[in-house]
């Protein structure tokens, strides 16, 4: 009986280009990508933190690295990743306690996460990097 139900033919739609990921889905995959990227760049960030604190010489080399235009762009990207992970994470914590579970609210809260995280990135990024 149970096997019959499982073997029943179901419609499949795995034509990836035609599947549109809704906004909460985009938020979710960026949450994962940003987490993975922050993990991969941990040694770089720890090195930056260490050289910024150790001595006048290492502080000078820290300054030189951070003043490089390309590094600034990478750091701005990392700040966005951090802020997105932070805001999306708070959204997930609220979902955990059943706040904003309805579809309409979930889409609205996704928009808020994107808006707030980009705003925070610009405010903090410009203050810290420029």
């Amino acid at each position: 009986m149970a096997e019959m139900a499982i073997k029943k033919k179901r419609p499949k739609n795995l034509d990836l280009p035609t599947i549109r990921l809704p906004l909460p889905g985009i938020l979710s995959i960026i949450h994962r990508i940003s987490g993975a990227a922050l993990f991969l760049l941990l040694p770089f960030l720890l090195w930056l933190f260490e050289s910024s604190l150790t001595s006048a010489e290492t502080f000078a080399s820290f300054k030189a690295v951070v003043d490089h235009g390309l590094v600034k762009i990478i750091l701005l990207g990392l700040i966005w990743f951090y802020m997105h992970h932070f805001c999306a994470g708070i959204r997930y914590l609220l979902l955990d306690v059943d706040i904003g579970v309805d579809l309409k609210e979930a889409i609205l809260s996704s928009k808020i996460v994107f808006g707030v995280s980009i705003a925070l990135t610009l405010i903090v990024g410009v203050q810290v990097l420029w």
Binding site: R32, G35, A36, L38, F39, L42
Partner: peptide, 13 residues
């Protein structure tokens, strides 16, 4: 917290 959090997240990946 970062390291423990990263452990769980990366392990999930």
């Amino acid at each position: 917290s970062v390291f423990y959090h990263a452990w769980i997240g990366i392990r999930d990946i």
